Amino acid sequence: MIENPGILLTVLAFVLVIGPLVFLHELGHYLAGRWFGVKAEEFSIGFGREVAGFTDRRGTRWKFGWLPLGGYVRFAGDMNPASQPSPEWLALPARERAQTFQAKPLWQRAIIVAAGPVTNFVVAILILAGFALAYGAPSTPPILDGVVAGSPASAAGLQPGDRIVAIGGRTVSTFSDIAEYALLRPKEAVQIDFDRAGERLQVDAVIGERVEKDRFGNIFRIGMLGVRSGTPVFEPVGVFRAPLLGAQQAAGIVRTTIDGLGQIITGRRSVSELGGPLRIAQVSGERLAMGPTQFVFLIALISINLGFINLLPVPVLDGGHLMFYAVEAIRRRPVEPQVMEWAFRGGFIAILALMLFVTLNDLGAFGLWRNLAGLIG
């Protein structure tokens, strides 16, 4: 039976996910800028016309825009998208100019820009550390307790008692490492390294494919080897070790994201799997309906992806600014304003095109085009 969380719950869940994460991302920029003496003129959650807001004692306007799909901090003197000095900036009084973003040394500007994505990673790491404290760390040894008859593992000759050491060239330390690797790679050929009675062996296998449908009717194509573990083991985690485990899990999620993008680029996965704001809203509603644990984990996952995407070297994104700062550090002079301007225009167009594409993807996943074709036919 398909359970739909409903439009109101979906919208609420989307706001509860995106709003705080965007706020914390921009707060990272804001706090770093404030630390280095840069005045913030505006701090906005959402775009478009202001719905509500207030001005604090430092002259910063805190406001909410009507379109809650992002946010920004506008620092004093930040008069163009590339944050380049302009005639208006040069015309400012010396005291005001000293409080602007452009007036700060390169390393301070880089820290201010990087602080947003870093904050997203820190938030996710803290959430994952909390899960580790509450539930422990998965520590089930990668020893096969059973092999499903007729499965890829059976065809490759794996047997109960074999200890998987590596799969696809990646070291395996727990049984969950096996499942996580196979999950994203249906129908891919891999090499499996394992120990059998003290002897190191290797076999080639083709990961199987299984199509699953969740309680909301979503269909997933996942990879499976056809192996079973023994009794799941969860190792207790202390306060000091939890952040380290959280960081390791965050790094693993980033690696999985890169793997997924690589599969889409190389054609091993369909571009239809790329999702945008509508898909995020759908998943947010579904996870909230599943309970607080699933919902909070989704927040950590999206926070990691928000930090990762913003670090990509694309003009307009934080990573694009950092890329130009790196060039400036190497050349020992800023990139020419004309080059910056055209690069940021191109980056803006690319981001808009991507947003349009993933939105069309989302609408297709919701069956809009199929329904329209049925009406026309």
Rank of each mutant, 00 (worst) to 15 (best):
60 T>K: 14
327 V>L: 11
373 A>N: 12
84 Q>W: 09
326 A>G: 05
24 L>I: 03
126 L>W: 09
253 I>S: 09
260 G>C: 09
258 I>T: 07
316 V>Y: 05
198 G>R: 01
8 L>S: 02
192 I>Q: 03
246 G>Y: 06
79 M>S: 09
91 A>I: 02
20 P>C: 01
327 V>R: 03
288 L>F: 02
286 E>S: 02
38 V>S: 13
160 P>F: 03
274 L>H: 14
210 R>K: 15
271 V>K: 13
350 A>F: 15
101 F>S: 12
291 G>T: 03
321 H>A: 03
334 P>R: 01
271 V>E: 04
223 G>W: 09
210 R>I: 13
74 R>I: 14
73 V>H: 04
366 F>P: 08
305 N>G: 04
198 G>D: 11
66 W>C: 13
261 L>D: 08
195 D>K: 01
71 G>S: 06
157 G>S: 06
30 Y>L: 15
187 K>G: 04
87 P>K: 06
167 I>A: 08
261 L>A: 08
94 A>F: 06
321 H>G: 03
74 R>V: 10
19 G>P: 02
60 T>Q: 12
113 V>L: 14
35 W>C: 07
51 V>W: 11
227 V>A: 06
111 I>T: 08
171 T>N: 15
235 E>L: 10
107 W>V: 14
361 N>H: 12
17 V>C: 08
55 T>M: 12
325 Y>I: 12
207 I>P: 02
137 A>N: 11
331 R>E: 03
182 A>M: 09
254 V>R: 08
186 P>S: 00
79 M>T: 09
169 G>D: 08
216 F>Y: 10
151 S>H: 05
63 K>M: 10
271 V>M: 07
206 V>C: 03
184 L>S: 11
190 V>A: 15
193 D>R: 10
124 A>M: 06
85 P>W: 08
99 Q>L: 11
264 I>R: 09
335 V>H: 07
256 T>A: 10
157 G>C: 02
67 L>Y: 00
157 G>Q: 06
303 S>M: 01
308 F>E: 03
64 F>L: 15
1 M>D: 09
115 A>P: 08
74 R>W: 12
288 L>K: 02
147 V>E: 08
157 G>M: 01
365 A>E: 10
174 T>F: 11
61 R>C: 03
330 I>H: 01
39 K>P: 07
218 N>F: 04
242 A>D: 13
369 W>C: 00
358 V>M: 09
